[in-house]
Design a protein around this nucleic acid. Sequence first.
DNA 1: TATATTGATTCGTGTTACCAACTACAGGAG
DNA 2: CTCCTGTAGTTGGTAACACGAATCAATATA
Lengths: 149, 149
Amino acid sequence: MITRGDAENADDLIDALSQTSFTVMAVLARAGAEIDLSLTQLRVLAILRDRRLRMSALADHLGLERSTMSGLVDRAEKRGLMQRAPSEEDRRAIDVFLTDAGRAVADDTRLAVGSSLAPLTDRLSADARRALVLLLGELRGATPGPRQT
Amino acid sequence: MITRGDAENADDLIDALSQTSFTVMAVLARAGAEIDLSLTQLRVLAILRDRRLRMSALADHLGLERSTMSGLVDRAEKRGLMQRAPSEEDRRAIDVFLTDAGRAVADDTRLAVGSSLAPLTDRLSADARRALVLLLGELRGATPGPRQT
DNA sequence: TATATTGATTCGTGTTACCAACTACAGGAG
DNA sequence: CTCCTGTAGTTGGTAACACGAATCAATATA
C-alpha cells in the first residue's frame, strides 16, 4: 500500500537537498573569498588538515584530474600554504602537506565557516540539529570519514 | 547549564552540511556534464524553467555579476537553449527565456538528477525523507521559493 | 630485458568569474 | 527642455579552474 506520496516526497527531497547545497556552497565560497581562496582551495586545505597525501590521492579525494591538481598545488604552494616533497616509498610520487601558515588558514576558515553558517544552524533546536546530523549521515551512507570542508 | 554538547553538535552539523553539499554538488555537476552543461548553466536553466527574467534579475538570483551573465547567456543562446528579447517596459533591459529545446533539456536534467540522487535518497525511509525535508526547510528559513537546481 | 603501467607535469583549450570602462536609455533637478 | 545622475547590458582584460593529450621518470610485469 501507500506508494502514493512517495514520488512527491522524493522530489521534495531532491529540491530541498539541491537548494540547501547551493546555499551552503555559497556560504563556503564567500568565506573563502574573504581570504582569497576558492572553494576548491578550501577543500584541499581541509583535506590536508590532518593528513599528508600524494598528488594522485588528493586528486582522487577531490574527484579531479591529476593535471588539475598540479595547478592547484602550484598556486597554493606559491602562497606558502602547502608544500611538496618526494615520497619515501615511490620515487615517482610526490607528497603534499600543509605548512604552518596553511594550517592556520585552514583553522581560521573553519571558524569563519562556522559563524557564517550560524544564522542557518541557529534556526534549529539542539534536538533538531542532532536529528539532522543523523539523517544526513544516513543519507551519505554514514561514513563518518574525513573532513571535506 | 548544559552548554557543553552544544558546540560539538554545531560542529557536527557544519561537517554534515558541508560534506552533504559537496556530494550533492558533485552529483549535479556530473549530471550536467553528461550533456555538457556546467553547474551554473544548470542553475540558469532551472531558474528560467518557469519564468522569464531580465539579465540583471537573473544575475541577482545567481549572485553573479551582470558581466558574467552576458557570457553565460551568450553561450546558452548559441546552443539554442535560451533566447534574448528586448523588454517591453524598459528599452535598456533585456529579457531571457528558455527555448523549447532549453525547456526539454531542463526537464531531462531534472529527471537525471533525480535518478542520480536516488542511491542516496533510497537509503532513507519515507518517514526519514519527510523529516529531512522539513528540517532542511527550517534550516533555510522555510522559504518555499523558486527552484534552484 | 623489453614492455607496459603508474605518478606527475606541461601545454593548449574552454568555461566561469571578476573588475573597469563604455554605450544606451531612464528619471529627476533646475 | 536640458543637464546630470543612475541603471541595464555589453565588451575587454585578467585569473582561476578544469579537462584531455602528450611527455618524462620510475616502477611493475611479461
